[in-house]
Amino acid sequence: MDQNIKNVDLKLDNIEVLTSGTTAEFVNGILDFLLYQRRQIPFVYKTYKYYVDKWSEADESGQSKDQESFAHYQRNQQRSKAKATKESISDMREVIRQAFRSSEVKSLRFLFGNNTFMPSEVYTLHIPHDSISRDHYCEHHALPEGRINQALLRLLTCEELYTLFSTELNATNVFLEMELLTDTGGLQGSHCDSVNLIPKHVFSKVPRSCKNIHLHLLHCSENAPNELRCCKELDIYHDLGLLNLDKSGADVSKSSEEQDFLKAANETSGWWQAEVIVRGFRAPGNQKSGDLWSS
């Protein structure tokens, strides 16, 4: 079962504060990277989105109403498929953002294949959830796009992935599965319903023929966490804590029990599958690529 597993460390260097929002954007960057590298979209996501949105603007203004012909019909059919792929990518990116915002994500994986039972390639992302600070506002510690690209460039030069990325993968489905930590002893059902996640009662095992890549996200910072200050770390919160110095023994015992309970809860997790599925798009080989993308 383990002969195809490859472990790759992906460091997030020089990031003072790792927030849930920052982590979500980095995961979305990895999704965009994999979709392009594995030939599920013809351009990088930003360029692909630009062209598809340009078609929509042309349709609204009536510029696309040219002579009706079979070639025109074929082009519109392909553009409809390209739009559907773009919308599903956008939906999956939003599911990831919402999941990180409302839950604690332990790991997630992208499965490339016709179904989740026999995927061709699986990319599992291990999230450094213990390093994620929820006392900081993500907008104050946004991760620059250049920093994301620098980290992703390491995947292109990674020897373990060189052979894999040099082989072409046919257009296929991309599924998203997420491992969420539990709270209060049960799965976070209300949160998962709001982001369109379906519980997986049986974890899908990866077949021996599947390429199984594990990406371990590592948070590296030069500053110690206790040296960082943010809008949610004002002195007033520290001063209010000093008022509880006269706790009784029962209160201390209760606090210790609560800590043990929270620790045990954080060690329990469950897997969920996103309802949204990205269906890879590739223009037919007998059609000139320029004809499809030109307005």
Rank of each mutant, 00 (worst) to 15 (best):
1 M>L: 09
3 Q>Y: 14
4 N>Q: 04
12 L>G: 07
14 N>M: 10
16 E>I: 04
18 L>R: 12
27 V>E: 11
27 V>G: 01
31 L>I: 02
42 P>T: 08
42 P>H: 09
44 V>W: 05
49 K>M: 00
50 Y>D: 12
55 W>I: 05
62 G>W: 09
69 S>G: 02
70 F>V: 15
79 R>K: 06
84 A>M: 04
85 T>V: 08
86 K>V: 00
88 S>F: 05
93 R>L: 02
101 R>S: 09
113 G>T: 01
113 G>S: 04
113 G>I: 03
117 F>L: 13
119 P>C: 11
120 S>P: 07
125 L>P: 08
128 P>M: 10
129 H>P: 00
129 H>I: 01
131 S>L: 05
136 H>Y: 05
143 L>I: 14
154 R>A: 08
155 L>Y: 06
158 C>Q: 08
166 S>N: 14
170 N>S: 06
197 L>G: 10
204 S>G: 02
205 K>L: 11
214 H>Q: 15
215 L>M: 04
220 C>Q: 15
221 S>D: 11
224 A>E: 12
237 Y>F: 15
242 L>H: 14
243 L>N: 14
253 S>I: 08
255 S>N: 03
265 A>R: 05
278 V>Y: 03
282 R>E: 13
282 R>T: 12
288 K>F: 14
288 K>Y: 13
294 S>A: 14
